[in-house]
Design a binder for these strands. Structure first.
Length: 917
RNA sequence: GGGCGAAUAGCUCAGCUGGUUAGAGCACCUGCCUUACACGCAGGGUGUCGGGGGUUCGAAUCCCUCUUCGCCCACCA
């Protein structure tokens, strides 16, 4: 292998704009991101597979900060595992997004003055497919700019032929097992999208509505009325009864009698049903079976008719079984206008009792925000309860963990009350239901399309509906790997996947259902970990959104500061389950942490490359311990600690055995802690101390200089490895230039660091650091000009003497002090003495010390210490404490007490010394 | 209505099953352009751990209660 020795200095600035795309292309060309099924241990290979399937963005989507965050997190995990030796696979792809995409194209048509009905189904689908073909998938390109190490050779699309096969197989096999059925019932209907919605797609929004009280006359008894309260008076046209609770004595005598529906003057019965809550309103509820899910149930129990008085567009109309129910003036009127008309008319006929404000929640379409209309119609449903059992057990047992932990409770709560899933949509864009109806009303659910002959013979007509988008998404982990082909190599090599990274909003829409599907179709959970991250918000904690105009375009950030700066900022700022707060009005400030850190790394690299030379260096592992300086030993120990901390923060990649054990279950995936541990090592330890400590040695060609160079190169190389998952571009760029780099190798595939020996901490350099910091503090306190050297007399620091013998010059340089060591303070120096805590440092500062000020300071310290000591001694004297506290605690407290006593004595001595001044 | 969570520095948050003098990043203040880096260096903590009560030798941590905020669910007629 050729080696490169490009020790040419790096340019002054890292230019992400040119470096990042070129690097990404190089990774791609080298196949760094491409997984090999044959290498998976599940397929006879020697690497554990580590698999993440991307939450497929809508095919028409463009990258926003939410995607930026979501994909940065996934990329960190994938890169980490790839470096750790796993066969890492990140499956990318997009979702055809039925309603969303159809809406986009319909808007285009509207601009042309047309509707989809003008085009007709086939032409509309063709146009939408063409739209997706030409403009869709932009987001996948944008993910490359982010650095996402997806395996593009496996890019999937929910509406591809392969995945469509999976959708069809899933539905047919569910049907065979009796888990799907067609039902005529009240569902959520969006009058704008003209389709049914699932419970999850009809989102609750608080609203300030009204409660309209209407008096219904009791038939044949002009003296009596019965008052109902409703939030939707317009539905009264479809009333078929009023219900009272069977236990409600107020109305017991009316049950079975008739009342007269105002305006229409129709007689309807009073029925008893426990659904009526005596405590709510008047205790009487009008029953409109076609326009309310509860009323529908009541109507079914009582065998009532179900007239439909609102059409699919949300306009008043006599649709089904409602002849004579909608007055001529109302026909074609929008439901909200009709509400006003009804209330006004009720008032005219004297049936309006009152209208009062009433806070309630109204369901709205999650795609267009239109108020959802309950609608009686034929739909296809999937029975969820049988599938929920296993999904529930999986989380309870720890086979699947959800992080942060609190979401497990939410998940369990939802599953326990799960309801059937309406999967049919009255849309054109999507997977059409594989359902045919024959001329005798028979239903045919089939894997293959019927032949022309069958169609003719049986009079087959295919169901017009398509599936809910989520009916393809829920198969994503299995379908992207090849299911229903059970012999698919990817399915064998890479299923189950490992971690699913997404936002909590789609826990029910998607995550829970994927778990259902995994068990249902493959018999295994689709992943062992669900990681739910927070939301990107602005400084007012509002979710970033197009309509609020408070968004940040990740591409702007990438252009300004580079992808690494973006990634670092969001990953380092992402506590478990917490939101990421960014200021869209101040990108400079928002992304400063990432930008600054990337620059810092660059400059460490620049320093190293200009100082390390190109002479061959010994391997650190081959170095004799005696040849290492205190600083060398220290930084190597700090590296081990940093590696250990990073590993601990990231946690176990997978459970040991079938379930997560309690000691690991909710640990790991602390990306912020991992990032911080790596940053602290690189910046606060390596750059701030080791680089500064080692500078003089780098000037020399001696063996010691080579030791310093070797250690510096080693620890920086290791730091780059630790940091690569978060900031892949800058680390790869520098790593490629390190002396000894083998051409054609990538940091992205380099081995993750392994801590050698964590026990070998190094005290010597720690003492030196304390000394330097101590002297610097005093310099600061007394405003010693930076250029001025100060004399420093170290007294009673015998244990430091050997260390200082070797590194005294280093301390002197870093602290800008002239060190002298003495066993005891020479007499006469007391007037200029400042004592450091611990008593081992004495600094004669000439005339720099303000004695009065110093005395006041020491007195304050002493008073504080005395107070603490008193309380500590009281505690130690307390019989309850000595009887009940753990021995180790008592021991620690005693040690503390004697330490404090010693300190107090020192402070007293210092006061005495100052008194001499 | 049911369930869950949060409240700690100016901001975002750590502080695990109670035990040194409550921490980090950012922001801020002071002094420095010390030839890798001013996107930097050195120094500095600015706090009634939301209020009240309780348990305990000891509470940011456990219990009760109040206040405020947030999330999930719901057949709020």
């Amino acid at each position: 292998m050729a080696t490169t020795n490009e020790t040419a200095p790096l340019p002054e600035r890292f230019d992400p704009g040119s470096a990042e795309p070129a690097l990404y292309a190089a990774w791609d060309a080298a196949g760094v991101h491409t997984a090999n099924a044959a290498r998976s241990s599940k397929n006879g290979g020697d690497r554990d597979p580590f698999v993440i399937v991307i939450p497929p963005p809508n095919v028409t989507a463009v990258l926003h900060m939410g995607h930026g965050l979501n994909n940065a997190v996934q990329d960190v995990l994938v890169r980490w595992r790839r470096m750790s030796g796993d066969e890492a696979l990140w499956v990318p792809g997009t979702d055809h997004a039925g309603i969303a995409t159809q809406n986009v194209v319909e808007k285009q048509l509207a601009a042309e003055g047309k509707t989809r009905f003008d085009l007709g189904r086939d032409a509309f689908v063709e146009r939408t497919a063409g739209f997706v073909e030409t403009t869709g998938g932009v987001i996948l390109q944008q993910l490359r700019a982010l650095g996402a190490s997806c395996d593009w050779s496996r890019t999937a699309y929910t509406l591809s032929p392969e995945l469509s096969t999976a959708v069809r197989e899933a539905f047919v096999s569910l049907h065979e097992q009796g888990l799907v059925y067609r039902g005529y019932r009240v569902i959520h209907w969006c009058p704008r999208c003209l389709t049914s919605l699932s419970d999850e797609e009809a989102e609750f929004h608080d609203s300030q509505g009204t409660l309209t009280h209407i008096a219904y006359r009791v038939a044949g008894d002009p003296s009596r009325t019965i008052t109902v309260a409703t939030t939707r008076p317009e539905t009264m046209l479809g009333d078929v009864a009023v219900a009272v609770n069977p236990e409600d004595e107020r109305y017991a005598d009316l049950v079975g009698k008739m009342v007269v529906l105002p305006i229409l003057d129709r007689e309807i019965p009073v029925i008893a049903d426990s659904y009526a809550d005596p405590a709510f309103g008047t205790g009487v509820v009008k029953i409109t079976p076609a326009h309310d899910a509860n009323d529908f149930e009541v109507g079914k129990r009582a065998g009532l008719p179900m007239p439909i008085v609102i059409d699919a567009d949300g306009k008043m109309a006599e649709v089904t079984d409602a002849a004579g129910r909608v007055p001529a003036e109302l026909k074609g009127m929008d439901r909200f206008a009709a509400r006003k008309w009804i209330v006004a008319t009720l008032e005219e006929v004297g049936a309006l009792v009152k209208v009062e404000p009433h806070a309630n929640s109204v369901r709205r379409c999650y795609r267009c925000d239109t108020v959802v209309e309950p609608r009686l119609s034929d739909q296809w449903f999937v029975r969820m309860e049988p599938m929920a059992q296993q999904a529930l057990a999986a989380v309870r047992s720890g086979e699947i963990r959800i992080m942060p932990e609190r979401w497990e409770a939410v998940y369990i709560n939802w599953l326990e009350g799960i309801r059937d899933w309406n999967v049919s949509r009255q849309l054109w864009w999507g997977h059409r239901l594989p359902v045919w109806y024959d001329r005798d009303g028979g239903i045919h659910v089939r894997r293959d399309d019927p032949s022309p002959d069958e169609i003719e013979r049986l009079g087959l007509r295919q169901d017009e509906d398509v599936f809910d988008t989520w009916f393809s998404s829920w198969l994503w982990p299995i379908s992207t790997l090849g299911w229903p082909n059970k012999d698919a190599e990817d399915l064998k090599a890479f299923y189950p996947t490992d971690v699913l990274v997404t936002a909590p909003e789609i826990l029910f829409f998607w995550v829970a259902r994927m778990i259902f599907a995994g068990y249902q179709f493959v018999g295994k959970a689709p992943f062992h970990t669900v990681y739910l991250h927070g939301t990107v918000r602005d400084t007012q904690h509002r979710k970033m959104s197009k309509s609020l105009g408070n968004g940040i375009d990740p591409l702007d950030v990438i252009q300004l500061y580079g992808a690494d700066a973006l990634r670092w900022t969001v990953v380092a700022g992402l506590g478990m389950g917490t939101d990421v707060i960014l200021d869209p009005t101040d990108l400079d400030k928002s992304f400063a942490p990432g930008r600054n850190f990337v620059t810092k790394l660059w400059n460490i690299g620049r320093f190293l490359l200009t100082n390390i030379g190109d002479r061959p260096l010994p391997a650190v592992s081959s170095l004799d311990a005696a040849s290492l300086s205190a600083a060398d030993r220290w930084i190597l120990a700090r590296l081990d600690i940093a590696i250990t901390e990073c590993d601990a923060a990231l946690g176990a990649a997978r459970p040991q055995g079938a379930t997560w054990k309690m000691d690991e279950r909710f640990r790991g995936l602390r990306l912020d802690e991992y990032a911080e541990a790596a940053r602290r090592f690189a910046w606060n330890e390596l750059a701030d101390w080791y680089v500064e400590a080692v500078k003089p040695r780098l000037q020399s060609d001696s063996p010691d200089g080579d030791v310093a160079r070797a250690v510096l190169l080693h620890v920086f190389d290791q730091a780059l490895r630790l940091l690569h998952p978060v900031v892949p571009f800058i680390t790869e760029t520098i790593w490629q230039k390190l002396p000894g780099h083998t051409a054609g190798t990538f940091l992205a595939q380099a081995a993750w660091p392994i801590a050698r020996d964590v026990s070998g901490g190094d005290e010597d350099f720690e003492r030196l650091r304390e000394l330097v910091v101590g002297i610097r503090q005093i310099r600061g306190e007394y405003n010693v000009p930076p250029g001025q050297m100060i004399p420093a007399l170290l007294v009673g620091a015998d244990d430091l003497a050997p260390v200082l013998e070797r590194d005294g010059a280093l301390v002197a340089r870093m602290a800008r002090a002239e060190l002298t060591i003495a066993a005891v303070a020479p007499s006469g120096s007391a007037a200029h003495v400042v004592l450091r805590a611990g008593g081992e440092v004495v600094l004669p500062l000439g005339g720099l010390v303000d004695v009065a000020r110093e005395r006041a300071r020491v007195e304050e310290d002493l008073a504080q210490l005395t107070k603490q000591l008193t309380s500590l001694e009281a505690r130690l004297a307390n019989a309850g404490f000595t009887a009940k506290a753990p021995p180790a605690v008592i021991e620690a407290e005693r040690a503390k007490a004697s330490e404090w006593k010693a300190r107090a004595a020192q402070l007293t001595a210092k006061l005495d010394a100052l008194a001499l001044a």
